[in-house]
Design a protein around this nucleic acid. Structure first.
Lengths: 396, 396
DNA sequence: GAACTTTCTCCACTGAGTGGACAAAGACGT
DNA sequence: ACGTCTTTGTCCACTCAGTGGAGAAAGTTC
């Protein structure tokens, strides 16, 4: 199949495509209710979209007491690729134009091996999905990388945990390989887009997404749009000071949030506790697995281990301390906690909540939900698909 | 003179009015260069604006090698009122439609006396300006108050330092009294608008304005627009924890930034130092004035007093500590320091800069200017005029 | 089968916006 | 003084997006 290359010709068409993406098949009448255009004009634009092939007829809907409506929907053969590159693993997924996941693969990986090796892996994962019959090709791809990105060009800039990627033309390279438009963004921003599109943040306009994985980052959404900052490093909260004169951090300072709580820090602290004999539970797991991860701490806490619980509580306190400041400053309508450590679940959430509600002013926290992300590991790939569809479903 | 009531009929007219406001008298040709409309259409819209009286002819400009242009400008009789209500004083100013200050009065005042008393004072100040022949009436007014505001309604919400104002319909009441449209906002947001319009932030799209006066607040500008948060309390950074287990704060917590550094805190610390005999300079001033203010500390520091200098440096360090976190999070293109304590000048600025540059990541601070505001005490009133003109110069 | 609903199409009309021709007004060289 | 060039502004015919009403098509309900 030849891939779609058409783009909406005007804002009306863009709006219609986005409506069809977000609410599935619709009749002309239903579209008209949401789009503030005369029925005549709307019919014209829908017909033009049908001509481009982006939209196809979808049969007759059931009657609601009158003439049955002719539904239209986004072309079901459109395929987007969502790629979420983490520090230690990659997620690749295929979606249709309505951003439903048709297939999803996760593989371990190390970003530090550099862009060439990682892309080889990503491309082979994409090929596998294609080979399984889910897609004959891709109409667009959205990629998330664990570091700051100069968004318009799709190029990582000075990424701390992936030094080899600095300045690598991710967007251009992947667009070449995949033969379709590509957008690149920070992984946390993709997660925010994902939760906004299909998760807990569907109705909020200003919110924060705190992703606690190997590192810690924050996605910022202002007025429904991801805010990326002047140099693309907005949300880089891992190196905000959480503990004065605290632990030394790789960045050269002391007491950075990331040095005190993150997947990596938690594993380190748990190992330390096990070795010092402060927890039999953790020591057993260390013995068994030859190492400890955040998941081990979660399991130990679930098994009632006090030390593990303490580690989580202490981490939640540090995180909550920083988030409290951000809440005072940003006054969001929602805070979403996500990332690898969401396995720590409600113990973590409770610790964060306590700290934030205690430290921020009532006006900012009065009606502020602090919740776990809904999408788990799929938030990033859905966000990727959303990112590229936002791009393709806007006037050229 | 009957006040102007016309509003632009469409976005083109709004755009033209804003252009004329920001760059003064212009010929049709010059306007055409900036507005992406055909000369014909532009002429039509300009003619309509002339009919409304918002815009008037302004004679012929000098020739530039061809036919001389007929300039047009905003009606020079338009008058805006800018009001900046602080904790301890009020600024009221009259501007023309180009937001040039024609007259400016500052008077001491205490917000805690409540809205009724304060408005009486504001109205009498406005009357004084009118009586001096600067205005026959006002076409709009922009008011800043030192606390959070529910912006669409123009009503203060839960303002900590002005409890009597909670829920008072400032916008409606003043609109009634002045007989013109009124917009109300947080004083720090007005300052941000002022610096954006006529100060240091003219070319930046994403920036922060930190106002250090009796309290501490922060104005946030995203994509050229003031960001106010979900409940209007965005930028309320005075109660972010700057010093763990630090000084007790009126809000009930400990170590809040405002408890450690602000006009009030500085005066308190200076008085303490004077009484403990740590500074002869400050003790002398305490004796002479019967009390100490931030200005006294500034003067003492300028006279070489080490204790005063230490107080400023320590305050700058706390402030810088908090700002560093905000810079990491928000990645602004500029940070402006303003408010009453700008009298502390470069000693304060240096301390803040040191702390921010040390604590934030290079990518966020690499090209980040941290500067003092340019407009001083006029920032707020210019911002007020800007606020209402933005409102009036947009389609009804 | 009549009356009512809902969906969709057709068509004449409005009005925003364009671009080119041309007029007005000045600068400059000869 | 006069023609040429440049810049500014006006006029006008034309295009095209968008509207709203009439009415056809296709159902449901009683």
């Amino acid at each position: 199949m030849r891939r779609m290359t058409a783009r909406p010709a005007n804002t009306h068409q863009a709006r219609l495509l986005q409506l069809l993406r977000d609410s599935g098949p619709n009749s002309r009448a239903q579209l008209g209710d949401q789009v503030d255009l005369s029925r005549s004009k709307l019919a014209v634009e829908v017909d033009r979209l049908l001509e481009t092939g982006l939209v196809v007829a979808d049969g007759l809907a059931a009657s609601r007491g009158g003439r049955r409506s002719h539904n239209v929907r986004l072309n079901p053969e459109l395929r987007f690729l969502g790629v979420d590159i983490g520090a230690t693993s990659v997620d690749v997924a295929v979606t249709n134009a309505e951003l439903e996941i048709l297939g999803h693969i996760n593989q371990p990986m190390d970003v530090r091996e550099g862009p060439v090796a990682v892309f080889e892996q990503v491309l082979s994962m994409a090929a596998k999905l294609r080979a399984s019959g889910l897609a004959e090709g891709f109409d667009g791809a959205g990629i998330g990388v664990p570091g700051p990105v100069r968004f318009p060009e799709g190029v990582p800039v000075a990424p701390p945990i992936m030094p080899g990627w600095d300045g690598f033309p991710v967007r251009e390279a992947l667009s070449q390989e995949l033969g379709c438009p590509v957008m690149v963004d920070n992984d946390v921003n993709l997660m925010a887009l994902g939760e906004q599109h299909a998760g807990v943040a569907r109705t909020v306009h200003d919110f924060l997404v705190v992703k606690i994985g190997t590192g810690i980052g924050c996605g910022i959404v202002v007025g429904g749009e991801v805010y990326r900052g002047t140099t693309g490093s907005a949300g880089d909260i891992g190196h905000i000071q959480a503990v004065p004169d605290g632990r030394p951090c790789a960045c050269g300072n002391r007491g950075c949030l990331e040095a005190h709580f993150s997947g990596a820090a938690l594993a380190r602290d748990a190992t330390e506790a096990a070795q010092q004999g402060r927890s039999a539970e953790l020591a057993g797991r260390l013995e068994a697995n030859g190492g400890l991860s955040a998941a081990d701490v979660a399991a130990a806490a679930a098994a009632g281990d006090a030390t593990a619980l303490d580690l989580i509580r202490e981490g939640g306190r540090s995180t909550g301390q920083v988030i409290a400041g951000l809440v005072s400053f940003f006054n969001p309508g929602l805070v979403v906690i996500g990332g690898g450590v969401t396995g720590l679940g409600h113990n973590l959430l409770a610790a964060i909540r306590t700290q934030v509600y205690r430290q921020s002013l009532p006006l900012a926290t009065g009606n502020l939900p602090i919740v776990l992300g809904e999408l788990g590991p799929t938030a990033g790939v859905i966000g990727g698909a959303r990112l590229i569809s936002d791009h393709l479903f806007s006037p050229a």
